[in-house]
């Protein structure tokens, strides 16, 4: 007759002021890095922040933030543990290093389950690291979390932007707010993405230069915060929230 879990999702998210999905049409553009570092930067600014890794088949935020040895506490549901000042939730607590070969309906079910049982309590920001594209996870989020806003990430590639264009079209058609577009891995300073954003009347939030030092900083939050990537993202965050 009815899946009761869906009835409780709104209640679970009630005390969260802003829900931001970091999304893109393509993989490999830096969504997980932007989502992780955005959560970290907001937490360092004193906000109460949660990070939810929704990329169930290829999660990576735990590697970026160096999350190890944590498990959610059970108390009338599950309570995300705190890491680096962020309430952090990921399927990897349960899947470990095992592969999670999930089809669309399984992804939907796992998403509903985690939204129904996770107790975030009060948050200023819940940052959601989305899987690439506009398939099940994106459609489920749009169906189940009506007040989500989207922060879109692209690389300077025309190929990446073509997929972003489709994501923007979908979000507009369904009347979901788009905070803006971040251009990541900028190498040539090309105006292409900025011009495309202007043409589509999307807020171009800024570019993040390709940072060769980033790879070596993965897993070490303090090192990550000293990278050029982090410096550029901090400027973007300051512009959005000041």
């Amino acid at each position: 007759m009815a899946d009761p879990r869906i009835s409780i999702i709104e209640e679970r998210l009630r005390n969260i002021k802003h829900i931001i999905a970091v999304s893109s049409g393509k993989g490999g553009v830096g969504k997980s890095l932007v989502a992780s570092m955005l959560a970290l930067i907001l937490a360092r600014k004193g906000f109460n922040v949660g990070l939810f890794d929704l990329d169930f088949t290829s999660p990576s935020t735990h590697l970026i933030l160096g999350v190890e040895g944590l498990m959610p506490e059970e108390d009338k549901g599950v309570i995300p543990p705190l890491t680096n000042g962020i309430k952090y939730m990921s399927i990897t607590y349960y899947s470990g290093k095992n592969v999670s070969p999930l089809r669309g309906s399984d992804i939907s079910n796992a998403l509903i389950e985690l939204l129904a049982i996770t107790r975030w309590n009060s948050l200023d920001y819940l940052i959601i690291d989305m899987p690439p594209g506009i398939s099940d996870s994106t459609l489920d989020l749009l169906r189940l979390v009506r007040r989500v806003k989207f922060l879109i990430v692209t690389s300077p590639s025309k190929l990446a932007f073509e997929t972003v264009r489709k994501l923007i079209a979908l979000l507009r058609e369904m009347n979901f707010p788009i905070i803006g577009l971040i251009e990541n891995m900028d190498m040539k300073g090309s105006p292409y993405i900025r011009e495309m954003a202007e043409r589509l009347r999307i807020n171009y939030l800024g570019s993040i230069p390709f940072d060769f030092a980033l790879e070596d900083a993965l897993g070490d939050v303090n090192a990550l915060l000293k990278t050029k990537f982090s410096e550029s993202l901090m400027k973007i965050v300051d512009e959005i929230y000041n």
């Binding site: 879990r5 070969p101 089809r103 399984d106 079910n109 796992a110 985690l114 049982i117």
Partner: peptide
Amino acid sequence: FIPELAHSFIRCPNCSSPDFEVVKGRGVW
């Protein structure tokens, strides 16, 4: 906690595939 993780830990006893359907017995209704 996440019944879909059956796909991470259970394999078809006949061909060892992780690509199987939960025909029934999943979730709360």
